[in-house]
Design a binder for these strands. Sequence first.
DNA 1: AGAATAAAAGACAACAAAATCTTTTTTTAT
DNA 2: ATAAAAAAAGATTTTGTTGTCTTTTATTCT
Lengths: 141, 141
Amino acid sequence: MFSKSCKYAIRAVLYLAANASEAQKAGVKEIADALDVPKHFLAKILQDLSRHNLISSAKGPSGGFFLSEKNRRATLRSVVESIDGPDIFTSCILGLPVCSSENPCPLHSQAMKYRNGLLDLIEHQPIEEVARKVREKGLQL
Amino acid sequence: MFSKSCKYAIRAVLYLAANASEAQKAGVKEIADALDVPKHFLAKILQDLSRHNLISSAKGPSGGFFLSEKNRRATLRSVVESIDGPDIFTSCILGLPVCSSENPCPLHSQAMKYRNGLLDLIEHQPIEEVARKVREKGLQL
DNA sequence: AGAATAAAAGACAACAAAATCTTTTTTTAT
DNA sequence: ATAAAAAAAGATTTTGTTGTCTTTTATTCT
């Protein structure tokens, strides 16, 4: 479903939502250690997210990454789309170039059902909401 | 979701269900042309499927691929699993090594819901059923 | 203010995996 | 025998992942 980059991005954003703030920024090393992902790969992803204004960063001593208030209200969908591209939720599950409601592939209707639930979580709940659930339930990132 | 190999495999199997029989076998070239996929890549996939007894083949002149009665009653799930491995419907959508009902990732419950719909189509309807729908509705492979 | 330092940003190289193409071998119908 | 087709093996290309190194920027301490 998601690329590895995208999975790491989601987890990193949720980590930042839960464990960092403008006053308490998190460095690449801290995040990479916490999530157990390759540090340099993660750095690139964080830079991508930062360039897309989905997370915030500060250089220099006591610098690092964090979420601004605006970042917290963004949706996970924007994160997913900025990494995996906008078609991930709409493209045909069988990879057909022409597959739509008018001209559906054999799996189209089922596949739509499948994706709409996920889209709902990812689109209609802001990052801070998802992060709150993570905290409440003590879920592992 | 599915790898490219797997997408091609699904389409090829449905093509065979709709357009071939023991009396009227389909060659790699015919299938590749019909589905517009790379011929040699498809050949490898068909060989995989054949080795896993999900499709049948005959060498020599007027040879080719087709589905036996038994093949027709198999599920699309077995096709998917033989290409993409058994974990595709159960592994964590965020790639966490430990993610289960007891120890779910933030997207776990939503992800499960969706996948079950797809699994249902792929698991509980034999290939011939799916192929019948394809034919009835004139869907494009 | 200026030097030293810490951290992100960015360029690039190495490696791994997936997809595609080529060639050779085996089988079988004619 | 010959030709047609799958089967098999392997080479190549492409894409995705990971690692290294350099540059830039911001901070802190004198």
